[in-house]
């Protein structure tokens, strides 16, 4: 790796972090303001001689606004949050937004599909897409593993523990004898 290029990339990434941290602090500030504003519209029923449902939201909103402000100032002064360490995270790697996007999209899709095609099938698709995005080889094996695990989990939790999970027409018909 040529060092000049590497450093440039590094710097770009660090600047991306700066912006990201500021955006997060900004969102927190927005949340605080929303709390303070919206707390005013909470209906206070009956007698108002003691504190009602608005007081604590004001308190929390104030705390959030103060924290967000202080955080923004510190980020501007160059303070960086130490990115979370995890056994499976490479702290030096660049961010793969593609993988994050695929995982999130696959999860959203499975959430929307559960009531249509049943939990096992929806989860199998999600499992396949997520493992593929994370670099599993091929597509057949991830889908196969996801299918087997989800059907097993469905049978254990639905048939043995009576958890409510739609199984999809086919699976429900096939296991009705259980």
């Amino acid at each position: 790796m040529s060092t000049a290029v590497g450093r440039e990339q590094d710097q770009q990434q660090e600047q991306g972090r700066d912006v990201g941290e500021l955006v997060l602090a900004g969102l927190l500030l927005a949340l605080g303001v929303y709390l303070l504003v919206d707390a005013g519209s909470i209906a206070v029923p009956g007698s108002t001689n003691t504190i009602g449902p608005r007081f604590f939201p004001y308190l929390v909103g104030g705390l959030i606004v103060l924290t967000a402000g202080a955080l923004a100032v510190r980020v501007l002064r160059g303070d960086r949050g130490p990115a979370d360490e995890s056994e499976d995270v490479d702290p030096t790697a660049g961010t793969s937004w593609r993988a994050v996007g695929i995982v999130a999209a696959a999860f959203l899709l499975h959430a929307l599909l559960i009531n249509v095609i049943g939990w096992p099938l929806a989860v199998t698709l999600m499992f396949g897409a997520v493992s593929w995005a994370l670099g599993a080889p091929g597509l057949v094996r991830p889908v196969l593993i996801g299918g087997i695990t989800s059907v097993l989990a469905w049978i254990v939790f639905v048939k043995a523990l009576n958890v409510a999970l739609p199984g999809g027409t086919l699976l429900e018909a096939a296991t009705s004898w259980l």
């Binding site: 995982v103 959430a111 670099g135 599993a136 593993i145 695990t149 958890v163």
Partner: peptide, 16 residues
Amino acid sequence: IPRPYLYAGILMFASL
């Protein structure tokens, strides 16, 4: 357990 399957599995149980 390869990481792709581990995290796909974690999401599966999160969904469940």
